[in-house]
């Protein structure tokens, strides 16, 4: 029972969602919200790895999301569709459905590589210097995109909807729900496996006492690098999914406000708690949508609400715990750590 409970649950959830979308029980608007939830889960759990588990302070997560979004969008548009920027499709559009996950992964790898470049100088520095380096990196990435005219510069880049249409030629199913779901599950599995291994526990050791970790044979620099790359790589995957969900990307949508949203989800959920990050991503996405009618008041109400929440629960929803620590009975069904 324990082994199969979660996979069964996930499959049921996925088929329900796909079915509801296919029979048009839920409209495109609700589908988009559900997709955003999935994407935000990847964003928050991946940032949680660096800010929660490793105890560093990365402020520029949106920069990596941008890299993933642009790289995968450019690739998929160039490979599978006819576009003004890149001309005829390089591959037959029928392959879109098979090529898309690869494109996403390449976007993630590009983001991870960017993460490597950002993390390298941060080793020589201490404390909050990672904050500054990531903020600067976020600025640099956006500024770079703005200055590349082939990909639209400040105007943004579009055409990803045509990739989805190409996929639908292969089979008439709600593809994005499938992809977001699969990649969300894979991301969470990657993070969970990483953090539950002895290797990954080195990350926790670094947060609690870096000096002791280094002296007790933990290669702290290497672990920091690997962890940061996993985190930024997954952010890149989230970016690719976001770009294809919305169908349009614009450098402005990856500014520091987006990074702030990612930070909020991590701290709302509780630092270092995977289930906390997931819950916070769902709650936060819902909150953004439910308060949409308030328009500008929303952007006063949400920060205010968050400040109040932090006054009452200064450790986030879950603290440093997982669901199974709060409801021990869940352990019967699933091994959380």
């Amino acid at each position: 029972m324990k082994r199969f409970s979660v996979p069964i649950l996930l499959v049921v959830l996925l088929t329900t969602l796909m079915g509801l979308a296919w029979f048009e029980v839920i409209d495109l608007y609700i589908q988009t919200i559900v997709l955003f939830m999935g994407i935000n889960i990847i964003t928050s759990t991946s940032l949680n790895l660096v800010n929660g588990n490793m105890g560093e302070f990365s402020c520029g997560h949106a920069g990596f999301i941008a890299v993933g979004a642009y790289v995968s969008s450019i690739l998929s548009v160039a490979l599978f569709t006819k576009s003004r920027a890149f001309g005829a499709p390089l591959l037959p559009p029928e392959l879109a459905a098979y090529g898309f996950p690869l494109v996403l992964i390449i976007g993630g790898l590009a983001a991870a590589l960017t993460g490597l470049l950002v993390a390298l100088p941060s080793f020589r520095t201490r404390d909050d210097y990672l904050a500054i380096i990531t903020i600067a990196a976020n600025y640099i990435i956006i500024s770079t995109i703005i200055n590349i005219d082939t990909i639209g510069g400040a105007r943004g880049f579009m055409g990803m909807k045509r990739v989805i249409f190409a996929m639908e030629k292969c089979a008439e199913i709600p593809w994005m729900i499938l992809w977001v779901f699969i990649f969300m599950v894979i991301s969470v599995i990657i993070i969970r496996r990483y953090m539950s291994s002895t290797y990954g526990k080195g990350v926790e050791a670094i947060r609690q006492d870096e000096v002791a970790a280094e002296i007790m044979s933990v290669n702290t620099n290497r672990i920091k690098l690997v962890t940061f790359m996993i985190s930024s790589g997954l952010a890149g995957v989230a970016g690719g999914l976001y770009a294809h969900t919305v169908g349009y990307v614009n450098p402005k949508s990856f500014d520091l406000l987006k990074s702030t949203e990612a930070l909020v989800m991590v701290y709302l959920g509780g630092m270092g708690s995977i289930s906390g990050s997931i819950i916070a991503a769902v709650v936060f996405t819902l909150m953004l949508e439910l308060l949409r009618p308030l328009q500008i008041i929303k952007w006063v109400a949400i920060p205010l609400l968050l400040i109040i929440i932090m006054q009452f629960r200064p450790e986030g929803i879950m603290g440093h715990r997982e669901l199974s620590d709060i409801f021990p009975r869940l352990k019967k069904f699933y091994k959380f750590k």
Binding site: T260, L263, V264, W299, P303, L306, I307
Partner: peptide
């Protein structure tokens, strides 16, 4: 870091 987030929110 929670104080930092609070500061971010206050700015917003």
């Amino acid at each position: 870091l929670y104080v930092v987030i609070t500061a971010l929110m206050a700015g917003l």
